[in-house]
Design a protein around this nucleic acid. Structure first.
Lengths: 336, 336
DNA sequence: TTGTAAGCGTTATCAT
DNA sequence: ATGATAACGCTTACAA
């Protein structure tokens, strides 16, 4: 075990511990030679300053807490990777916790992390309609918090969002331009702003291209593959299939394709499908899935940078950053 | 900010700080009433012991470091979830880092975590053939380390492995029993023991069922989808397609299916395909992918439990735990 | 049962 | 330029 302390080094060199400390913290006066001598011997002895003592003294943990709904899917894994990239470079360690999409566990995790004295938090909320006052209170008490993804644009806090309205509109427009005349949107849960926004984008496209009410539907499906399965089976039974599905995410899109294929309905010839929040798998399917790509990694980096600034009291230009994506068109929406 | 200290509480109650400390650490003698009074007032004041001070005093960080090659794919995300589940319950916080499949970054991360005084490490190595002495040295210095997945069974350390030989054998046997007569194994990089073991299992099945050398091949493909693409295209050009592919992982399997489908080769009718290390997506494909499921979550839990025991010097029955999986048979290998 | 005080490994103020 | 020392917030041996 590494047990060499500043005292050991000081004793060995017949200098005071303050000199050793100074040698390791450039900011103090110390003769260049002594500094180098100390550093050399310290290295020989395998000395590393004990960060825990430093933390206590400086009243700073150099830990940042990150809470996500889950990281089994790529989305939040990539966000976390972006966060780590920035924070590690800045000398922070990242403590990640999952809320399992449960607000009360999310809040409990926040308390755990705060009790562990994290210097700041990045929260990807599981839900943006419940108890957001919990966070406003923490912020007003001086906590540094940055939110990512599932947060209302109107929420008065630092946050990084994806422009769901715009890219939902563009995805829908793409289907229209491909000649699909009857389009259903398999939407997520309405009390999530991201679902709400994607519905808005979809509606906007319907209006813009003057689709009559009979030519589109918005079906609240949820975010899970299983949910979609049931719905599509029903549509088939009711003989109420559209020309194309605009799906809340790739999981739903893939399960739609899977069911249609079981019923020998051809994608994209009979029915077009487009997903959202691109999965790596999207390009490994047959047919390959068209989807809206979100800049997950960059969203994480941006949030981390905002947090660093917040901690260092650097004023920020914009409290809210809304990011753009890419429309990755592949086979599933490209009939010729 | 939470700034209430043990002193504030003591002063407020006209007791000594040791009494307050005792109230929070059951193990000491303290009158029940005082204890309750202290706890109640402490709660009112919003006091929580400062874990950093506790760590310094107890010379223990209550942090555990975890290093994985990446957590964009589900495999390590699930392992980490299992680890967190156990460690959080035991009062530890988990510091996760990615090595990006690069041994030197992995070692650098180890040093970072050790300098941060983690109480133990769980390592999912990026490679098991290089510099494993690095770890043996740490262990001999008293560090607590548990390895997961990519480690040779002969490596003398605590570890949790998957029985790759057995399940590779079973996956291959399944293809044989389905009547596929010519089987190619798309293998991973040979200097990884997991690839090596899966090759062994494959060979074992070939021997057991007396396949002549002309009826099977082992092609070193790598772990990535792109690698497989090239290989299969070549096989098609050379008119050297087998009856079935036994793939090193699902990513490779899915890209095989995708290419075959582009060439209008039917899976599973013309060619059967089976993957390894089940992806969630496996059951969303058409055809749904057969695969070997690894108990990722349980592997993480097991490793974490072993680490806790190691830290608390509890003797362990077996230094090496080798886990079993499931054969999830779906459409891609089920011709009728 | 409770209080006093030393000490964990640093940093930073004040002398020298 | 360097050294002595208090302090960070807690635990724990020892004293009362």
């Amino acid at each position: 075990m590494n047990k060499t302390t500043i005292k050991d080094v000081a004793k060995r060199l017949n200098v005071s511990i303050s000199s050793v400390s100074r040698a390791f913290n450039d900011k103090y006066d110390i003769k260049k030679e002594t500094r180098e001598r100390i550093l050399r011997v310290a290295k020989e002895m395998g000395y590393h300053p004990n960060p825990i003592a430093q933390k206590l003294k400086q009243n700073k943990s150099f830990n940042i807490g990150v809470i996500v709904p889950e990281f089994i899917n790529e989305y939040y894994s990539e966000v976390i990777s972006g966060i780590q990239e920035v924070l590690n470079v800045n000398g922070y360690q990242v403590l990640t916790m999952q809320s399992n999409n449960c607000p009360s566990l999310e809040f409990k995790n926040v308390e755990t992390l705060l009790n562990n004295r994290v210097d700041g938090l990045i929260i990807c909320p599981s839900c943006d309609s419940e108890n957001m006052n919990f966070y406003l209170e923490k912020i007003s008490k001086g906590q540094h918090i940055v939110f990512v993804n599932r947060v209302k644009e109107s929420f008065p806090a630092k946050k990084v969002l994806f422009n769901n309205i715009k890219w939902s509109y563009l995805a829908t427009e793409h289907l229209i331009q491909k000649g699909y005349k009857k389009i259903y949107h398999l939407a997520g849960n309405k009390n999530l702003s991201i679902s709400h926004d994607r519905i808005s984008g979809f509606k906007k496209a319907m209006e813009k291209y003057k689709f009559p009410t009979s030519s589109f539907k918005i079906i609240e499906t949820g975010l899970l593959a299983e949910d979609a399965t049931v719905i599509v089976e029903e549509l088939i039974l009711d003989d109420d299939l559209p020309d194309a599905f605009m799906c809340i995410n790739d999981l739903v899109a893939l399960s739609v394709i899977s069911i249609l294929s079981e019923h020998s309905i051809a994608v994209p010839e009979d029915i077009g499908v487009i997903g959202f929040t691109e999965t790596k798998m999207a390009s490994l399917m047959s047919p390959k899935l068209s989807s809206v790509k979100q800049p997950t990694y960059e969203m994480g980096k941006t949030a981390a940078e905002m947090l660093c600034k917040s901690i260092n009291n650097i004023v920020i230009e914009r409290e809210t950053v809304i990011m753009n994506g890419d429309l990755n068109i592949r086979k599933s929406s490209s009939r010729s």
